[in-house]
């Protein structure tokens, strides 16, 4: 499918034979608001076929007619043969245009591209998911996959930091995961509200108190870069090993296939050998200014 981060093996791609710069057309089945600036698109191929299979952590390039194209992580269930799901935040011209899509409208999709979360490596281990803000979206496929194969994994911990209670993503699912799937779900917010009885504080505080008492746990982090840095450092302080921590990086991308030069990150090309990296693989670059 795609390279597992930290490994050099790269499997064949049948899609490479096609032009990776030409999108496949999908149509919008449903668009749903997650919070004031975030929405989720449910897409199906307009040709009636199945969506391209993907691995948790990969992304697509989404094209909207005449406006532009952006990379967005896939946030649906990799095992389901259902629709393609993308949770998108309105942060620019393209995403604002996408927020105005209606069921039946079409959208161009190139992908899936990039590396994925190391779910094979994680089999038999405790899985700690640390998400911040919209960073929960690229990790949702992991949660689908682990909960569907619950017995193959050890303890499952989800630590999620959001800006404010009303901005928490996938609220109903968070409750369900915590209830039904033997998963420790802890949510914290930067700013409380009057009726908020949950945690207030940063996600590193959740890491400090998380039950990371067993060896060999694997941690998957996604969120703003500063949050990922601080989270990784807190996990290291808690005794986790560098080679068991994974992060998902973000940079400007125009092609998604390692050709356009925009996602240069030191020696790395994020769309090609990322976005998911093992922490020790990019540690020297993290926190460096303007890389």
């Amino acid at each position: 499918m795609s390279p597992e981060p930290g490994s050099s093996s790269r499997t064949d791609r049948t899609r490479a034979a096609l032009d990776p710069m030409v999108p496949r057309i999908y149509s919008v089945e449903r668009i749903r608001r997650n919070n004031h600036d975030t929405f989720t698109l449910k897409l199906n191929p307009a040709d009636g076929g199945k969506p391209d299979p993907f691995s948790a952590g990969q992304f697509n390039m989404l094209y909207i007619f005449g406006v532009g194209e952006i990379p967005v992580s896939i946030s649906g269930d990799p095992a389901g043969d259902g629709a393609l799901m993308h949770t998108i935040r309105e942060v620019g011209t393209v995403t604002r245009a996408m927020a105005r899509l209606k069921p039946g409208n079409s959208i161009g999709v190139r992908g899936p591209f990039g590396s994925h979360w190391p779910l094979e490596t994680a089999v038999g281990s405790d899985v700690v998911i640390v998400a911040g803000g919209i960073g929960l979206a690229p990790l949702r496929p992991v949660i689908y996959q682990v909960t569907a194969n619950r017995s193959r994994y050890g303890r499952m911990i989800l630590l999620y930091g959001a800006r404010a209670p009303k901005e928490i993503l996938y609220r109903r699912q968070l409750k369900a995961w915590g209830g039904a799937f033997d998963m420790d779900v802890h949510v914290t917010v930067d700013r409380g509200e009057r009726d908020w009885n949950g945690e207030i504080g940063v996600v590193t505080g959740l890491i400090r108190r998380a039950p990371l008492d067993r060896r060999g746990a694997i941690a998957l982090i996604c969120g703003p870069e500063i949050m990922m840095r601080f989270s990784a450092q807190e996990l290291l302080r808690r005794g986790m090993d560098k080679d068991r921590i994974y992060v998902s990086m973000e940079r400007n991308m125009k092609c998604g296939v390692g050709l356009c030069g925009h996602c240069q990150y030191g020696t790395r090309i994020i769309c090609r050998d990322g976005p998911v990296y093992r922490y020790d693989d990019i540690e020297p670059l993290l926190g460096r200014r303007e890389v």
Partner: peptide
């Protein structure tokens, strides 16, 4: 120190939408 770090991170509003003001 932990609380100061946390307060600073909260102050940065890391999960805020960088385009929100412009929007």
């Amino acid at each position: 120190a932990e609380r100061l770090d946390a307060a600073r991170l909260q102050l940065l509003d890391l999960y805020g939408n960088p385009e929100e003001g412009k929007h």
